[in-house]
Design a binder for these strands. Structure first.
Lengths: 191, 191
DNA sequence: GTCTATATCTAGATAGAC
DNA sequence: GTCTATCTAGATATAGAC
């Protein structure tokens, strides 16, 4: 063979990594296969050795993204008591708002997910429920767990939709303070 | 003239109304000018008698949408004390989640707004601040006002991103209960 | 596995007839 | 103001050479 055993895997990994960033920044539909491939130094035609269609890439991409987010947010058994508070602080940061390419998929691709097929949405649902369950155990309130997730996603959407830095920061800070004031098991311990 | 004085205005109105629904349902970028025009019984070429570009339509559309939402959510001086609670109940309804075409723009087009120019985002910012100010006065807490808006938008994104009706309803109900339990001036009065 | 070339389709936008 | 026809550009996807 002209290429090493690991070559295909590595290309696929690079393609996924690069596509995730590009799609989160500019939208998935709005980005062409050529652009995705040239971002890893290849041409458009080579794409179809890795995925049967652009849609298949979307599915793989969302699965990977949700897996990552959900693992990070849910946290392990060894996570500190203030794990949720830490997640909220990071999620609701200016850095996150300013860098969609390395952030959560939901604020950027949520609408495209909503329009996607049942398999994609089932993947998203599984991951969300995983986070919600974990947070529910930590904060001692299943409703609050869903509400925290919603609050985070919504605040990011708003923060990115406004024009001024001032308002952006205000939205994020207000969300953080609001959640800090909510009485939940571990939220009031210092992050 | 071959067309009545009011003809152009009416066509423009119909175009805007139809485009709003279509864009909120399927995304703005993903929908072509031909589709928008044929939805009001015209052909693509006629579009450019009403807007200089597709982007100009987007700007007009977002402005109109945000104006409507913001007027509705902010409410007049004669609004009842439980105005905010009523808004939350309607916003966080299954009906809203199932009918993006007649709902708020932010959950569906928030990401596209984030990628748009400064003018569009400034419009959005103005409208959001209007709602926030009004709600802040009503609930007596500026942070809570931003948080409520974020919670609403985020919950809708999540509700539409999941696959099962059960989880969708759970997310919306949890958000409603969480906000009901938050102690704010008018939130605990029956909606 | 990747390349170039290409087929096919759809997009935004313009020109000129009516 | 709207139509048809068309230009140009970009998209997804395939074919065959290397």
């Amino acid at each position: 063979m002209r290429y090493a055993n690991t070559h295909k895997d590595e290309t696929r990994k690079k393609l996924l990594a690069s596509s995730r960033a590009i799609a989160k920044k500019g939208g998935f539909n709005s980005t062409g296969v050529d652009a995705l491939m040239s971002s890893i130094g290849l041409t458009g035609g080579a794409f179809y050795s890795h995925f049967p269609s652009k849609q298949a890439l979307f599915e793989a991409l969302i699965e990977e993204e949700m897996q990552n987010s959900s693992d990070m947010l849910a946290g392990g058994e060894d996570s500190p008591d203030n794990h949720v508070a830490k997640c909220l602080r990071d999620y609701l940061s200016t850095f996150h708002a300013m860098h969609p390419e390395v952030g959560c998929v939901l604020p950027t691709l949520g609408a495209e997910i909503a329009r996607a097929g049942p398999e994609v949405r089932a993947t998203v649902e599984r991951a969300l429920k995983h986070t919600q369950k974990s947070w529910s155990a930590r904060v001692g309130d299943p409703d609050a767990a869903w509400a925290l997730i919603a609050q985070c996603v919504g605040a990011l959407v708003l923060a990115r939709a406004v024009e001024s830095d001032k308002t952006r920061k205000e939205i994020l800070a207000s969300s953080r303070r609001f959640l800090d004031n909510a009485q939940m098991k571990d939220l009031n311990k210092k992050a």
